[in-house]
Each structure stands twice: as C-alpha cells, then as structure tokens.
Computed example of a mutant assay.
Amino acid sequence: MDPSITSTVVDALPSGGSKDSRVDLSELQRELEAVAAEALDARMRGIDLVTAVHDDEGFPQLAQFHRELRDALLVEIPKDLQPWVAAIAGDEARERLAPKANARKAKALAKLDEQRGALTERLSMLHDDLFMRAHTDPEDAGDGDAQLQSALSELLVFEAVRLQLLVTVWSSTDFESLGGDERAIDHIAWAEVEALIAEPAMTDEAVRPLPVMVAASNLALVKDAAERVEALRLVSEDQRETLRMRARLRAALRELRLPESVLLENALAGLLGEDRLELTELQEQRAMALEGLSRQAMDQRVSRGRRALRQPPEKWPSRRKPALFDLLRSAPSED
C-alpha cells in the first residue's frame, strides 16, 4: 500500500519530545494496511461501514480496530505522552497534566507548546486530506493503492466523528437513559458522514469538513434523543427506570480502569441487557484492555471489582491518571 496515508498521519505528529516518547509507527502502519484492505473489501461488496465494523467474522481487523479506538478513549495516558497531549488538548488539559511533569518533561512540554500552532494546523490539514480522499468516488479512485487510501480515509473520517459523539454522549447519562447506545451512535455518525462525503459543497475551500460533520451529527443526535423521548412515553415507568439504571451503571463503569471496566461490564451483562461472553472470547475481543492477563487474574479483578462497586466511589478501582475522555468530556451541569 502506498504509504501516503500513513505519512499524512505522521506529519500531524509533533517533532518534539524525548526519544522514549516517540511513537514507532511500523506496527500502526501494518495494522492500518490490514484495516484498509477490509474497508475496501466491504466497500466493493456494497456493505456499509457501520455494518462492517460490527462483523467480527467477515471483517475481523475492522471490527477490532473499531473497538480499540473506543477503548483508547478510556486508557490512562502514559506519562511519556502527557506532555504531547497537554500541548494539543487545550488549556484545561494543560492544567491537569502539566503540574505533574518533572523538569525534563516540563522542558519537552515547553518545546511542544511552541509548536502548538503548527500542530493544530497539521491536524487540520490531516482532517481535510482524509476528507478529500474519502470524497473521491470509488469508480474514480483508480486501482489498488488509491482505492485502499480512499476506503481507509472514509473509515478514519467516520471514526473521528463517531469518537467525538461518544465523548458528547458519555459526558452525561441523558442519551443512554433514553435507550441510546453505542451502536446507535455509530449509525448516527455514519449516516451524516456518508451523506456529507457525497455532498459537492463540502469541497469548497471555505468549508472545514470535519467540524461540519461533527455539528451535523450532534444535531442528528438531538433529533434521535427527541424521538426516543416520545417513544418512551408509551412504555411503563418500570421500563424507563431500567434504562436509567443501566445508564448510571455504564457511566460508573467508564470511571474505572479499563481492564476492570471491560471485565465488570461483561460480568454485569445481564443487568445491562446484553449477552455475557466467556473470558477467553472477551480477552480476544478487548485485547487493549485484557492482553496478558491470566484467567485467574481476570477472575480476581472481577471479584474485587464487584465488592468495590458496593462501596463509595473513592473505593472503586478508578483510573489513577486521566484518560483522553477525562480531558475531552464536558463539564457536568450545575443545574
């Protein structure tokens, strides 16, 4: 595969930072190539992305990539990456992360801070480049590498919009209390991305495609929520309370360290209205959270986690360091 897509991603990364914090992109490149091949396969077979990313049998790399991007929002940010995140994530993130930096990290942070404007511009260029590749009609994309790049770009644009919707929804329990879930978020994001990628006006130089797609998706989210409110008027209060309970439980699980969050979500699947997986299958599907854990270790974490959730929140196995979601989430309402 032509490395231009990977190069575009690399160009958006900062050049500063310590040697230890530099990212080895070779594994990422291999993963993206496999994901791109499956995204193109789905496109050629007339299967839309929102279906393909949930098809573990037909598109295993695509489905795994989709799950891991979601889980990445809840991974504690490693110390080596905290200065980089602080430099690009805004003033509030800087205040949370910068005070914990030692002298060496502070020096790296200062250097990255000088690059902040350039980083923002490179990220903006990345968004625009991905959109233009995704916007290309499949019949006009050419053969081989060009089609792979177009399919991968479409996927990355979809995932970018979907992740921002997830942060919005996870910032409160409102949407989930109405019965909305992550699958619904996927469908909302894909519907807007699919429509706007095909919109000729989006290629205007004055238009920033990703912000427009995110805004459109948020409007669609509000409309979907309003429709759910009306639908819930027809069900019993017990059913509405069940949805509210599940929303509160999911929100609580998202505050935990990722391994405990994934394990307890599975252990409490019955309460959440979902099917419980065997731990071996769960570990395979959620490798980012559970890789390297023995069956005994997972059982112990579930047992300790169940006991902890009966205690006040300060006793929960919560994150010790902030995750990206913690830095991006909206502040809770004071109403």
Rank of each mutant, 00 (worst) to 15 (best):
R133E: 11
A86D: 01
E255W: 03
R116N: 09
E27Y: 15
M132E: 11
L97R: 03
L73E: 03
L256E: 07
D181Q: 08
E265Q: 12
A191C: 01
L327I: 06
R22W: 08
R116A: 13
V50W: 00
Q283E: 15
Q29G: 09
A267T: 11
R329S: 10
A191G: 07
P3L: 07
A189Y: 10
R301W: 03
A195E: 14
F158C: 00
A98S: 11
L155K: 14
L112Y: 06
A39D: 05
L249G: 02
L293F: 13
Q147M: 14
T168M: 05
A191F: 06
R310N: 10
A297Q: 09
L73Y: 06
E334Q: 14
L148M: 15
D2I: 05
S330F: 07
R240W: 09
K321H: 13
V193P: 14
Q149H: 15
A106L: 05
E154P: 11
Q300W: 11
V212R: 14
R22C: 00
D335P: 15
A206R: 15
D80E: 14
P313H: 01
Q285C: 05
V50G: 00
E121V: 13
V10W: 09
P83T: 04
V229L: 12
R233V: 14
P209K: 06
A220H: 15
A189T: 05
G58W: 01
E38T: 07
T203S: 12
L268T: 10
L219M: 09
E291A: 15
A108V: 05
R301A: 04
M288E: 13
E291R: 14
Q285S: 06
L219Y: 05
R43W: 00
S4Y: 04
D140N: 12
A215N: 12
L282N: 04
A141M: 03
A72N: 01
V229W: 11
S217K: 02
